[in-house]
Amino acid sequence: MNYQKADFQASYGLSSQLPESDRPEFVFSGRSNVGKSSLINKLCNRKNLARVSATPGKTATINFYTVDGAYFVDLPGYGYAKVSAADRQRWDQLINSYFDAERNCVLLVQLLDSRHAPSADDMQMLEYLRYRKIPFVAALTKADKLKKSEIAKKREEFAFLTEEFGCRQIVLTSSETGFGVDELRSIFESLLSEEV
């Protein structure tokens, strides 16, 4: 998979606008300020492929990126308190319709902040992934902020916590240093080779 061949395709605010699912899709999910855009940028070696929002909770669209022969699908961030009930409802409807459609979702990357226990919204999302039987790995962000001695312990803690929800793997990542990016890429590669 050539990550240099990455382009922003479009943002979709309505389920009816979503493009046809004609290739493998890797989906990114997480809280508003957990670093989804930064991780997508790092995976593709680009600074501004995914635009980092200055205002958390403002991205109420599903953003599609073409990456070689696959899609990276960036779901709108959740759990931001200042979002109105109507926006939250639209968010729910958009996410549900994405997963209700016959989409070729190969894997979802659930981002969690490595420094903190998952929030109530994170737990709700994990429950949703289990309920929908969506295959996922957990990417623990901001790993550069951890002491080296904490890394193995954090991996263990989150593995224990997410196991019951069907998490396949824990990957510690840092969009600052690139830590864990190659590990995530190799997970994508191995799943794509199974697709063929």
Rank of each mutant, 00 (worst) to 15 (best):
Ser186Gln: 08
Gly166Gln: 04
Glu163Ala: 06
Tyr71Arg: 14
Val171Asn: 05
Phe8Ala: 12
Leu161Gly: 06
Glu189Arg: 02
His116Pro: 02
Tyr131Gln: 15
Leu161Phe: 13
Ala50Cys: 03
Gln4Val: 00
Asp100Ile: 15
Ser15Gly: 03
Ser21His: 12
Gln93Asn: 14
Ser32Trp: 07
Arg31Tyr: 11
Asp68Trp: 04
Leu112Cys: 10
Met125Gly: 04
Ala10Asp: 07
Ser32Thr: 10
Gln93Met: 09
Met125Phe: 11
Gly13Trp: 04
Leu172His: 08
Ala6Gln: 05
Val67Gly: 10
Phe26Arg: 02
Gln89His: 07
Ile170Gln: 12
Thr59Trp: 00
Gln89Ser: 05
Phe26Leu: 04
Ser38Tyr: 01
Asn96Leu: 06
Ile95His: 10
Leu172Ile: 10
Lys36Ile: 11
Phe188Cys: 07
Ser53Pro: 00
Gln93Gly: 09
Glu157Ile: 08
Tyr98Ala: 13
Val171Ala: 11
Asp68Gly: 07
Tyr65Thr: 01
Thr173Gln: 11
Glu127Arg: 12
Pro118Phe: 02
Thr177Lys: 01
Asn104Gln: 10
Asp92Cys: 02
Ala54Pro: 01
Asp68Arg: 07
Asn63His: 05
Lys47Glu: 00
Lys58Pro: 03
Phe136Met: 05
Leu14Gly: 15
Lys36Gln: 07
Glu195His: 05
Asn104Thr: 12
Ser114Glu: 03
Ala143Gln: 08
Ser114Thr: 05
Arg103Gly: 10
Thr61Ala: 02
Leu43Gln: 02
Asn2Ala: 08
Ile151Asn: 15
Gln169His: 15
Arg168His: 03
Tyr78Asn: 02
Glu20Ile: 15
Leu49Ser: 05
Lys145Glu: 15
Tyr65Ile: 01
Ile95Asp: 01
Asp182Met: 05
Lys58Leu: 00
Ala86Ser: 15
Phe99Gly: 10
Glu157Thr: 09
Gly57Thr: 07
Ala101Ser: 13
Ser193Glu: 06
Tyr80Val: 01
Ile40Met: 00
Asp100Arg: 09
Phe188Met: 11
Leu112Tyr: 13
Phe136Leu: 14
Leu49Pro: 01
Phe99Ile: 09
Pro19Arg: 15
Trp91Pro: 04
Phe72Tyr: 05
Leu14Thr: 13
Gly79Asp: 06
Val181Leu: 01
Lys154Pro: 11
Ala86Asn: 12
Glu176Cys: 02
Leu126Trp: 03
Leu108Cys: 14
Thr141Asn: 14
Gln17Asn: 12
Ser119Pro: 13
Ile170Phe: 12
His116Phe: 13
Pro135Thr: 09
Ser21Trp: 11
Asp22Pro: 00
Tyr80Ala: 03
Leu140Glu: 09
Asn33Glu: 07
Val171Phe: 12
Asp113Asn: 06
Thr141Cys: 15
Asp87His: 14
Val52Tyr: 12
Leu140Phe: 08
Leu146Trp: 07
Arg31Gly: 11
Lys154Leu: 09
